[in-house]
């Protein structure tokens, strides 16, 4: 068994298999709320834990897929290019929306942590929870925080943002596709963007745009906070 699991093929096969089967079930059953990413993750974790398979074995193949996240992020420029007219038309609203979102992310983490009496290390580690993973790690390092906590909070945020967005946006009566997409990308980076892409081309493009702009704004805000001696 060890021979099979401790090879590149195992992780790749398991990931492709889970994603395929869940996507198929989703399509056939019409259950659109099924999240193939979330379910695949849960199933793979269950298989690893129950089969007593080390995480390192899975990641031999997993890291191959993981390394493709770079090109996947790069091609997010395409939906943005397709929506260039909308982008120019709403440039100030877009910038204003993203900046207020980023500020609310940082302020809400600080206020909530202080209210709940959470230690400072955890507080610093959660500041970058809304941005895309590589930037979040960068922010964690800038603030001398715990990278592991930052990564886990980024993933929870991404999964949560994507799942809550349709319901939340309906509740708040948000109708404009630009506002929908931006809010998903700003709050839950590329993971949430997977949901925005399902909602429509404009939503997906704006969410993709928000990943980059929100990440840059967060870095700038953290630099400013450090210059002001807050951290």
């Amino acid at each position: 068994m060890e021979k099979i699991t401790n090879a590149h093929l195992f992780g790749i096969f398991l990931t492709v298999g889970c994603f395929y089967v869940i996507s198929l079930v989703r399509k056939r059953s019409g259950l659109n709320w099924l999240n193939p990413l979330l379910l695949s993750t849960v199933i793979i974790i269950c298989i690893l834990v129950m089969g007593d398979i080390p995480y390192d074995h899975y990641m031999k193949g997993g890291s191959v897929i993981h390394s493709l996240l770079g090109p996947v992020t790069v091609v997010l420029a395409l939906p943005l290019y397709r929506q260039r007219k909308l982008l120019v038309e709403h440039k100030y609203s877009i910038l204003g929306g993203i900046v207020s979102g980023v500020l609310s992310a940082i302020i809400s983490v600080i206020v909530l942590c202080r209210l709940l009496g959470i230690n400072e290390l955890l507080e610093r580690s959660l500041i970058g929870h809304s941005v895309t993973t590589p930037i979040g790690i960068g922010v964690a390092n800038m603030l001398q925080a715990n990278e592991g906590i930052t990564i886990i909070s980024i993933i929870i945020t991404g999964l949560l943002g994507g799942s809550l967005a349709p319901f939340m946006l309906k509740l708040l009566r948000i109708t404009h596709p630009v506002a929908k997409g931006l809010s998903i990308g700003t709050s839950s980076h590329a993971l949430g963007t997977t949901k925005a892409i399902e909602m429509g081309e404009t939503e997906g493009a704006m969410s993709g745009l928000a990943i980059g702009v929100a990440a840059l704004t967060t870095v700038l805000a953290v630099i400013l906070m450090q210059l002001m001696g807050w951290y």
Partner: peptide, 21 residues
């Protein structure tokens, strides 16, 4: 941690959506 992340995510989503709209 979960509580902070959940609440903060909801706040960011709402603030961004409402201000953009």
């Amino acid at each position: 941690t979960s509580l902070v992340v959940v609440l903060s995510t909801i706040i960011v989503l709402a603030v961004t959506a409402l201000s953009t709209q």
